[in-house]
Design a protein around this nucleic acid. Structure first.
Length: 293
DNA sequence: CCGCGGGCCTGAGAGC
DNA sequence: TGCTCTCAGGCCCGCG
């Protein structure tokens, strides 16, 4: 499901009920996610406080009072929802409203804020790991990740350098988390369309012969930043199962210009092209062959 | 180094 | 209604 805007939307939804709160209890209903849950997962979390909830690429990072970091990834179908703990009948004990349980609720955090934070993931491509904070930067899943696209440091020069000498296509380069963090199939297609660059173009063409970043690179960076910014403001995209943690749907899917619009009219002003779908690296690419060069 | 195919999983939707 | 087939927002591995 989730690319950077969806993960950031989830982070913003969870932060108010997790930051500064303790894990009162943790239910691990299914431990076989993309990797097995860590040994003693519930015990290692219980009693710990979430100092801060951050995001790096598509990873959520809960900084814990135990000097560990809870690293979470949503895979393709993961989602979080928040519900208020029902403890009215017997104070001090939990009376879960089991009617609210859904299939694939694999992990449930009972927080001292009174919130239940429920991780649901039908396909189980998601991930939860505990990593010592001092080792996080060197962790294999984090170490290789490229620059945050919304950071000030990310600009035309940085993107062009990351793409220099690459023989792969722009679509493949932008999808590569080592080149730039957080983009997935949807936002790569959308950014390339906004920048009017073909997904089939060689990534190395973002720099001129001497390696100097060119106008294409600057345009692409602007396109990436604008589409991500707008998607975050809209609360992400809800194609099938992405919801905000409050259950509300994100809105950005209505503003896709090319994604899943095969045969539709290209929205670029003055362009009379029709959106095409091709397959690159086994994934659908949507683009306008007329204005994306 | 690179593109491609397959695998990991389940569910939704299309077509028959 | 129910079956089969294809496809899906991520990521990893191995092959040629």
């Amino acid at each position: 499901m989730p690319e950077l805007p969806e993960v950031e939307t989830v982070r913003r939804g969870l932060a108010p009920v997790m930051e500064g709160a303790r894990f009162i209890a943790v239910e691990a209903n299914r431990k076989d996610l993309r990797r097995p849950l860590p040994r003693d997962f519930a015990r290692r979390l219980t009693g710990k406080t979430v100092m801060a909830l951050g995001r790096r690429a598509k990873y959520l990072l809960a900084d814990l009072s135990s000097n560990e970091v809870l690293l979470m990834h949503l895979g393709m179908s993961g989602s979080f929802r928040v519900s208020v703990e029902d403890r009215e009948t017997t104070p001090g004990r939990f009376h879960h409203r089991r009617s609210g349980a859904k299939p694939h609720d694999h992990v449930i955090f009972h927080m001292s804020s009174g919130a239940r934070v429920i991780f649901n993931d039908p396909r189980r491509f998601g991930l939860m790991l505990l990593v010592p904070r001092t080792e996080l930067a060197e962790h294999p899943l984090i170490k290789q990740v490229g620059p945050e696209p919304l950071g000030h440091a990310f600009g035309g020069a940085m993107l062009a350098e990351a793409c220099a000498n690459k023989k792969m296509t722009l679509k493949a380069a932008l999808s590569d988390q080592k080149v730039v963090a957080g983009l997935g199939n949807i936002y790569v297609c959308e950014a390339l369309h906004r920048a009017r660059l073909s997904p089939k173009r060689k990534a190395s063409t973002l720099a001129s012969k001497g390696g100097t970043p060119n106008a294409h690179s600057a345009r692409l960076v602007e396109a990436i930043k604008s589409v991500l910014d707008e998607a975050i403001v809209a609360g992400g995209s809800s194609l099938r199962d992405h919801r905000r943690t409050d259950g509300e749907l994100g809105d950005f899917q209505h503003r896709f210009r090319v994604y899943d619009r095969e045969g539709g009219a290209c929205p670029t002003p003055g362009c009379r092209g029709l959106i095409r779908r091709i397959v690159q690296s086994g994934r659908s690419t949507f683009f306008c062959p007329v204005c994306q060069k």
